[in-house]
Design a protein around this nucleic acid. Structure first.
Lengths: 338, 338
DNA sequence: AATCGATGTGTAATCGATTACAGCTTGCAA
DNA sequence: TTGCAAGCTGTAATCGATTACACATCGATT
């Protein structure tokens, strides 16, 4: 802290100017090999570390991106963050992680204090006007909000919902209940609409009840379902919701999947380990992170405005233990091992 | 981006010097009210945002702390991070989050590039020499490593293990298996030692098998347990491990808790929702985060070295559904509702 | 031999804030 | 009236890097 070496000290030790030290470190090919070696030796000898504040100030960029997630405690996001970090750091970009909830002033400060050059936003429920007022390049990831006017990366939620419905229909279910995500959330609505469209297309009875992705909303949905029990399968807008629902069903003395099938969404880490292991739609989280980082890097390289893009990566249905034929329906063509 | 206002622009707009603007913003009481109001109005009018790089450079501090966690995807950590963030931000400190795994050079860079004034470390398995070489104030949280030579905050793991054993003994279990955390991990070893000490004190048969906190290690432990089935209860070093173990038990056709009891550790979010809901040791994560932030703030205020401290906060046993009397043992004094 | 370009290095301006120091007012006591 | 302290504000140095520009060297070309 006290006696940290400055670039000046390194220059002195190597017998060169500070300009040469700077070049040796950030543009090695612009100094002669022998000089570079002397500089690097001096760096080692002095224990020099570049001062980020000074560099950022002079070069007018932070070599960092900010990742904003609505909820750090959600494992769905942390996996994506890890993947963004990996891709960004190979490009020399640091990654800052922050929670997007709470005080808008805090967010504005984060977005504009110059500590980051770009933002990867995983929250579609922020005030659109605020988001549009940000002057940094932003990539919207996973979530979607047309009002932001941003480029984005996500999955085709309607298509994924269709896949889930087709799976349940294939098992013999004729009456389905969808526990939706929060109203106003674009991806949640895409899932609901995809669900209803698929039910209509396959001539199934499809009902939607409101929810908000949480376990509590899964429990609440089961409570309302229990009144008439008209559906034999639940399609939940998130794995957490599905897990909440299964817990509630079990408390009603019902077994998943023999009494009722449940499909989740996301394929969070616990989905495979849950009992029963969750049939769910796997979102390509590692690919999301990688793609977002790459797009961001490209945006930062281009000084001027880049073209808008919207990238949809497919979600895959992962069939595990939480779905089966409805009670009383023979499994057609049941095949061997599983 | 292009036309961001500088402090100079604000000064011009308000008809004062940049020094006054700076003071009006960071030491409001040092400028006259009327001047301050003019400055604030100018700030609003120009949309001025302080440039963090310039401020950090000049004031030689970053007003930020770095939180290092071994695994962002672990919800146990994310809850703590949220709590650190909350406490730090009320003090005007930004929080940077990074993964502590991987390239040591990356960590060294993070620790020394001047972007943070202090470090909250949640990883006890880093190279001790590297950690000691850090020149920033560091608080070790949750994990513990005596070789770091740091102040720390955590829970009394041996005591917590004793509580778990006492609970199982009270239910009638006489033979216990502990699935340990990774060797060399201080808190894992404290749990193992506490477990063995408690078994000895209560005259129970206590066995320890190696593990590493993961679900996979829980599954592996069950596989080895299945060879002799000598224990009627499992005490796992983490909830994830316990969940892995329960999954494996279920695949063996065994029911928790009627065939075998399982106790976890941590009380992660899923613990309460898992089926069966996990009996586990609740670590006070919000308090951990708050305490760490406060201690760090105190450390940063003190210029010189502060006294070392080691704070232990109690973990509480939360009894849920995964523990019961062993098969064939009547529940003594079973009491009413639960 | 003179010119040119390429290459490597140094000098000094610069990024945008903070803050030590000094100067100006103002109020009050002597 | 004068002196002094207190309070407010401005001037300018400063933090530690990057980088435009200038300069020196050297080999190749004419």
């Amino acid at each position: 802290m006290a006696g940290r070496a400055r670039i000046k000290d390194v220059a002195l030790a190597a017998g060169v100017s500070t300009a040469t030290v700077s070049r040796a470190l950030s543009n090695p090919e612009r100094v002669e090999k022998s000089t570079r070696d002397r500089v690097l030796k001096a760096v080692r000898a002095t224990g020099y570390r570049i001062n980020a504040a000074a560099r950022d100030l002079r070069s007018r960029r932070a070599r960092a991106i900010l990742v904003l997630v609505p909820n750090l405690a959600n494992t769905f996001f942390s996996r994506i963050i890890a993947s963004i970090t990996e891709a960004a750091e190979t490009e020399g970009l640091a990654v800052q992680v922050a929670d997007s909830r709470g005080d808008p002033a805090r967010l504005a400060a984060l977005a504009h204090d110059g500590r980051a050059d770009g933002i990867v936003l995983l929250d579609g429920s922020l005030d659109a006007e605020m988001v549009r007022s940000w002057t940094l390049p932003v990539v919207l990831l996973c979530e979607w909000n047309p009002d932001y006017g941003l480029s984005g990366i996500g999955t085709d939620n309607a298509e994924a919902a269709r896949t889930a419905v087709a799976h349940l229909a294939g098992l013999g279910h004729r009456s389905l209940l969808h526990v939706a995500g929060p109203a106003g959330n674009d991806i949640a609505e895409a899932r609901s609409e995809g669900f209803l469209a698929a039910c209509a297309a396959l001539n199934l009875q499809g009902t939607v009840v409101p929810g908000d992705f949480t376990m509590a909303s899964g429990e609440a949905a089961v409570a309302s379902w229990a009144e008439d029990r008209c559906a034999t399968a639940l399609f939940c807008a998130s794995d957490e919701c599905a897990i909440g629902a299964i817990g509630a069903l079990r408390r009603l003395g019902l077994n998943v999947p023999s009494d009722i099938s449940v499909v989740g969404f996301d394929d969070i880490d616990f989905a495979a380990r849950f009992i029963p292991a969750l049939t769910t739609l796997h979102q390509p989280r590692a690919a999301f992170g990688r793609e977002a980082a790459e797009r961001m890097i490209a945006l930062l390289r281009l000084e001027d405005e880049a073209d808008m893009f919207r990238i949809l990566m497919p979600s895959e249905l992962v069939i595990r233990e939480s779905t089966a034929a409805p009670p009383g329906v023979a499994v057609r063509g049941a095949q061997g091992s599983a």
